[in-house]
């Protein structure tokens, strides 16, 4: 499956909780509705944190891909 096309990318590689979520929140605030953010992470805590944050904040998690310890999330801003 092809990854959704991202309009913006946030690389949190190497960083751990709370920073991936802190930076994701900050970045999303500056995006427009409909933009797609690709979040790159190596913190395994994001496997649970990002899907639950999407559900809580009303954003859409389009895809999650994990390869060689690198997680790539595509999130569409809905509001």
């Amino acid at each position: 499956m092809n990854a959704p096309c991202a309009t913006h990318t946030l690389d949190t590689s190497g960083k751990c909780c709370p920073m991936p979520m802190v930076e994701t929140n900050k970045t999303m605030k500056n995006l427009a509705v409909g933009d797609v953010l690709e979040i790159i992470a190596t913190d395994v805590g994001t496997r649970t944190d990002i899907p639950s944050w999407c559900a809580r904040s009303g954003q859409t998690l389009l895809s999650v891909v994990e390869e060689n310890g690198v997680l790539r999330y595509h999130v569409r801003k809905e509001k």
Binding site: C17, P18, M21, V22, N25, K26, W53, R56, S57
Partner: peptide, 11 residues
Amino acid sequence: LAFAYLTATEG
């Protein structure tokens, strides 16, 4: 402080 940072950035 980490918990506060997480929740504060969500508003």
